[in-house]
Nucleic acid binder design. Sequence first.
DNA 1: CGCCTATTTGATCTGATTCAAACAATGTGG
DNA 2: CCACATTGTTTGAATCAGATCAAATAGGCG
Lengths: 244, 244
Amino acid sequence: VTHSALMAKKLESIGVDLTGDERAAIAAIPCNIQHLKANQDFVREGDRPTRTCMVIDGLACRYSNGEGGKRQIMSFHIPGDIPDLHSLFIRVMDHSLCALSDTTIASITHKVMLDFIDRHPRIGRAFWRDTLIDAAVFREWMVGIGRRSAYSRIAHLFCEMLLRMQAVELADGNTCSFAASQAEIADALGLSTVHVNRTLQELRGARLVAFEGGKLNVLDLEGLKAAGEFDPTYLHLDGYSEAA
Amino acid sequence: VTHSALMAKKLESIGVDLTGDERAAIAAIPCNIQHLKANQDFVREGDRPTRTCMVIDGLACRYSNGEGGKRQIMSFHIPGDIPDLHSLFIRVMDHSLCALSDTTIASITHKVMLDFIDRHPRIGRAFWRDTLIDAAVFREWMVGIGRRSAYSRIAHLFCEMLLRMQAVELADGNTCSFAASQAEIADALGLSTVHVNRTLQELRGARLVAFEGGKLNVLDLEGLKAAGEFDPTYLHLDGYSEAA
DNA sequence: CGCCTATTTGATCTGATTCAAACAATGTGG
DNA sequence: CCACATTGTTTGAATCAGATCAAATAGGCG
């Protein structure tokens, strides 16, 4: 998959359909490809990026370091995601971005992006929509961390990752790649590694998921959704037509 | 304060400076004023709003109801905030908005907003920036709920509310209105009412804040910031100039 | 006054953390 | 091809921050 086909697929996955012209315009965006090793930061808290990145392959995360060595992962990013799109209008990064496995990213200069948005306002709005969906995901994670049990939180995360991977056609049925370690899941859900481990065993015991070797295999999606109180509305994967 | 002056002030508070023309254009936006009683929802989960609202006076919040009667408040909204700006591009609300005290809001139709954004792309970008800052606040709350102690979380929230109120010139020194009950603070921070009450007593005991009768009075801002591990960067209140 | 809502206190319980150590898997250099 | 370092997973035991349950107190207001 080329980076432009991926971007088109991503935009379609959030309900934007593109004209042939728009597709061609996306294909013409100049970008740099970069290969990252696992655990490599590609944007750091405090940076003032001049480029914006799309994940092409692999898995990335957004995190911030609280005092006392406590890391909070705020989102996972799969191919098609543009995790620092916001840097177009928020100059200073208030968090870092890191590759969790070996990952490929494509970066586009802000100047190119801003020009592109000016010339293609419909796609500009789609990008805006994309950042708004990111925000919806943050809110959902807040609810999870604030109000759900560990069991529920992990189930919810697995549902989210599977659905997002399916939306960009990177899942194979109910199986998809999810190369996060238990420690990383713990950092994402506000739990300790030990507790994630034990809770994962419960989920396995309940025959809801298999999660091993960076592969997520959802054995019982309905059961997992129920366990995670998962309602996919917040992902806003369905189409939208602009208000008249 | 008129609604248009408030919107201008809000945009300036996030580092956008407006030309006279832009100011006039804002003043010409037609809107409806609505008075809400305490505890009145003005947008509900599942709605597909055709208008977007700005808080003029009072205090509102964004919340969602988890299973088992657990409410999670995801943000508080003070005058100048436009809590459902995202509904322009995300049709279905995945949460509700509610007035916490008697509150006045101004609403603008989506059509008017979209036309306005088309005609004033610079302000359109400022609105985009505003939604991005909201997202930054969600992320910060995630860190708080996931990784900080109750003591820290409450201190952090108080710092945030004071700084935001100061930014729109609604604070009187280190004192401002914050008409949330202890139960509402609990719902916002993922704590129980009982624990918020006890922790509040600790903060009082440490002579950091007085919080009573809907008034927040920060006695020792530096101490409170330290207690809350508060770094205001995420509010992005400083100016930004567009990338070249 | 009597009603309703918010705050406060006390006592008990528990989900999750922490500390510590074993175990498994993978990779690296000699 | 093995010794060993490294990173991730698993188990056990002790502890704690914060939840829960229950009830008292304090305001505000029609």
